[in-house]
Design a protein around this nucleic acid. Structure first.
Length: 489
RNA sequence: GGUAUCAUGGCCGAGUGGCUAGGCAACGGUCUGCAAAACCGUGUACAGCGGUUCGACUCCGCUUGAUACCUCCA
């Protein structure tokens, strides 16, 4: 592999050359969704970010095992709810079995990720299916003396861990500072220190989701599943761990501590974190109540949206920003993304119509090189897209006869688009639902024939009227040298 | 309060110690019966104040502002 890939590692806060632990293989774990609500734009960002990583690693020839979990137990509600499980709460409210809720929202998640053309991970483990592994891990930590039982619950002893290892290496936290900034929270009295975190929680009587263990009937702590499942499927040390920046502390920090204490080696070589999506400069999140679900985006049914946006528009919008930058949502920006995306897709059709020349005025090989350089520089998709637009310019110019392309150039350009736009960025031309209709096809043929006749008679009034009336129902007609073409907007 | 990140033209968003990011919008032009598309051209953008430097938007310091995390969140 002569492509040197550099990845920004949160651990070192530097771009580092990617060297896999096992040659030609890559292991990646990404924190997936907690399935108690409809997928929103915030879910799309990490899914698409690590989809790009997954696709590019595969393109480079790595055999990738990509594990993305589904959290279906263990996330505690806020202290106001006295530690009730999020899934259980929703289930009780709707009088459903917890697993019914999990099933429904998992399906919804998969449906919308599919529409965003996000590839399925290699393994998608559920926390509820790995109780044995989690309990085994807790036992190991208790035996090692790094975890302690208290009133049926088990906590990780952060201070003790910190005596031999360093707690806070990922987020730059210092234990003393954490101690100084303690707040009063429920259940705090069971812990030795406020920053200790739960490995196992004893279930309250009204708690529906519960499993037996040596300590109590209860459920696993919310950081544990990722440690248990990543170790199981990727090994004690694996290549890449991804997730949203908001998970850096305490979630990923806790993962590092648990896994290190358990396996006596650092669990992850490269930590990658995607940044947040903001709306009016504020994070889009469930707790803030300002999130827009993907369904609302696709239907345009949210007050903040002036129109519907297609899945590919959303995907393109997200990829136009670097994954480590904050991305601000806005209708103007979305509309710009939609138009830019259309332009890119149109060029892929235009390229089919270019007549090869004997000489060339374009340098496709250097363009390809720039595309690889962009991706190798910490997956810089905005730069890659800028380069693809250079290719678009070349294609359109060639179609206008202002650039000359050889047959070889044309095939290189086709390859460039199929490799970078479709295969790696995962952008697909969107099939208009109405376009397949034979009826519409036939009607349009007839209408355009009539219009062509009118035009032959220089009956511009009729010609224009047809075009305008069609425009009113979102069909645009464009006159070219070879006759009129139409498309549904 | 602590930790971290950021501040780029009408909007979104890259990047760099001196050389055009890109997309959208706007304006002018080519083409066209008109329109659209496409192509060509146009924008004293780098929060403020100091400092380093031959030269800073890019490095350093301060100020102001914003965001994230410190409590479930992608």
């Amino acid at each position: 592999m002569n492509n040197d890939l550099y990845i920004y590692n949160t651990l070192s806060r530097k771009k580092e050359l990617f060297v896999p632990i096992n040659p030609n293989h890559a292991g990646m774990y990404v924190c997936g969704p907690t399935v108690y609500g409809d997928p929103h734009l915030g879910h799309a960002r990490p899914a698409i970010t690590f989809d790009l990583v997954f696709r590019y690693l595969q393109h480079l020839g790595y055999k990738v095992r990509y594990v993305r979990n589904i959290t279906d137990v263990g996330h505690l509600e806020s202290d106001a709810d006295e530690g009730e499980d999020k899934i259980a709460k929703k289930a009780r409210l709707e009088e459903l079995e917890p697993m019914e809720v999990v099933q429904y929202f998992s399906d919804r998640y998969h449906e919308f990720m599919g529409r965003l053309n996000v590839l399925k991970p290699s393994i998608e483990p559920r926390a509820s299916g790995h109780l044995i592994e989690q309990i085994a891990m807790i036992s190991k930590l208790v035996e090692a003396g790094i975890a302690y039982e208290s009133n049926g619950s088990v906590y990780f002893d952060v201070e003790k861990y910190n005596q031999t290892k360093k707690y806070g290496i990922l987020s730059g936290r210092v234990l003393e500072d954490l101690l100084a900034n303690t707040r009063d929270l429920e259940g705090q009295d069971e812990k030795r220190n406020s920053f200790d975190f739960a490995l196992w929680k004893k279930a309250q009587p009204e708690h529906i989701m519960r499993w037996p263990s040596a300590w109590s009937e209860g459920f696993p702590g919310w950081h544990l599943e990722c440690s248990a499942m990543s170790t199981k499927y990727l090994g004690e040390t694996f290549d890449i761990h991804g997730g949203g920046m908001d998970l850096m502390f305490p979630h990923h920090e806790a993962e590092i501590a648990q896994s290190t204490a358990c396996n006596h080696k650092p669990p992850v070589k490269y930590w990658m974190h995607n940044n947040m999506i903001t709306i009016n400069g504020q994070k889009m999140g469930k707790s803030l109540g300002n999130f827009i679900t993907l369904e609302e985006f696709f239907k345009g049914s949210h007050p903040a949206l002036t129109q519907a946006y297609s899945p590919m528009t959303i995907r393109f919008f997200i990829l136009q920003a670097h994954y480590r930058s904050q991305l601000d949502f806005g209708n103007e920006a979305l509309q710009a993304a939609q138009k830019g995306f259309d332009k890119l897709m149109k060029a892929m059709l235009t390229i089919q119509k270019i007549a090869p020349q004997s000489t060339s005025t374009a340098d496709i090989a250097s363009l390809e090189k720039l595309c690889y350089e962009a991706l190798n520089d910490d997956f810089n998709s905005p730069i890659l897209i800028a380069n693809l637009f250079e290719a678009v310019r070349i294609v359109n110019s060639a179609y206008d006869g202002k650039e000359k392309l050889t047959a070889e150039d044309i095939s290189q350009l086709k390859k460039l688009f199929s490799t970078f736009a479709i295969e790696i960025l995962g952008l697909l031309p969107e099939v208009d639902p109405a376009e397949g209709g034979k009826v519409v096809e036939g009607l349009m043929k007839l209408i355009l024939e009539i219009r062509a006749n009118a035009r032959a008679n220089k009956d511009w009034a009729t010609s224009d009227r047809i075009r305008e009336e069609l425009a009113a129902v979102n069909i645009s007609v464009k006159d070219t040298k070879d006759g009129a073409t139409w498309s549904i907007d």
